[in-house]
Design a protein around this nucleic acid. Structure first.
Ligand code: MN
Ligand code: MN
Ligand code: ZN
Ligand code: ZN
Lengths: 146, 146
DNA sequence: TAATAAACGCAACTCAGTTGCTTTAATGTG
DNA sequence: CACATTAAAGCAACTGAGTTGCGTTTATTA
């Protein structure tokens, strides 16, 4: 699959859905475009506000599940018990989901940003604890909120 | 304030509450003891099950808020959208809340452990992002679940 | 174009956490 | 100890994100 970052053309969006075994419905194309445009992350509620036709929230939740399972988006940490998603910038699929970078949460606007350049320190073991994955979350002020 | 780790005597528990401007009620003493005994973390629901008298959930939530504000406990990351707390092992207060260590989530039992020994990598800036705090969360299997 | 299965839409539900308000009990003072 | 004060407890009703079931629509495929 090709990398999905930056703004994409309609044709790209449709073919990305196809490549992930998702049907190219009006809503899902719009949703994928929304994710490709945003530099930070989205909640179900934010999506509902920004999408043209007011879709049912169930449709949004199920689309998010489907996108996540097929490796198009991934959950990002969030302070307020909301589920936030961001587009996978690396090439992920249902079988190999790579999200090996730090995340930044702005304490002002509560947005979460993927910091693709900052690598997460890896360790395998600590005492009797077997470590499989590591997550690094940074907090502070984003460029907008400084 | 003295360090609060390991099992504490009733007298200690009461005086710790006092030092944090909290009243020494039966329930709060029991709650503090529960936290001092557990090596991992607790949710409101887990507390409800383990505490002797079946207290109202509102009482539990308000006690958790009060304990957190006064620096006795701190939130720990949790996968399942639940709010988990663990006892502060360092000396925290309402004014200075230090929680400068990694956290480990067991993917098997969903428990969260404070890894006091693992330090979190610190950085101040990245591009236009101003970083104030960093959190390192590790996932894998805890000693019980290996 | 017809069959099929995915996606959508609606209603009802779940469940952690919250809010308002009254009652109980811990604390401090005389 | 007796009383006033105020934190904490208790109860009921509510909130809001996310879920489940099921019937309908629409994209895909043959
Ligand atoms: Mn990310
Ligand atoms: Mn901790
Ligand atoms: Zn911001
Ligand atoms: Zn475990």
């Amino acid at each position: 699959m090709k990398a999905v970052s930056g703004i994409l053309l309609m044709a790209d969006l449709a073919s990305i859905l196809q490549q992930h075994n998702l049907r190219k419905t009006k809503f899902r194309i719009e949703l994928l475009q929304l994710f490709s445009e945003t530099t930070s992350s989205l909640t179900a509620e934010e999506i509902k506000k920004r999408v043209g036709k007011t879709n049912d929230k169930v449709t949004i939740y199920r689309a998010l599940d489907a996108f996540e399972k097929s490796g198009l988006i991934h959950k990002v940490p969030d302070k307020s018990n909301l589920t936030r998603y961001a587009m996978c910038h690396t090439n992920c699929s249902a079988h190999a989901h790579i999200d090996n970078h730090a995340h930044f949460i702005c304490t002002e606007c509560n947005e979460t940003f993927c910091m693709d350049e900052i690598e997460v320190p890896k360790m395998k073991q600590h005492g009797d604890f077997q470590i499989k994955t590591s997550n690094l979350t940074l907090e502070g002020n984003c460029p907008k909120c400084i």
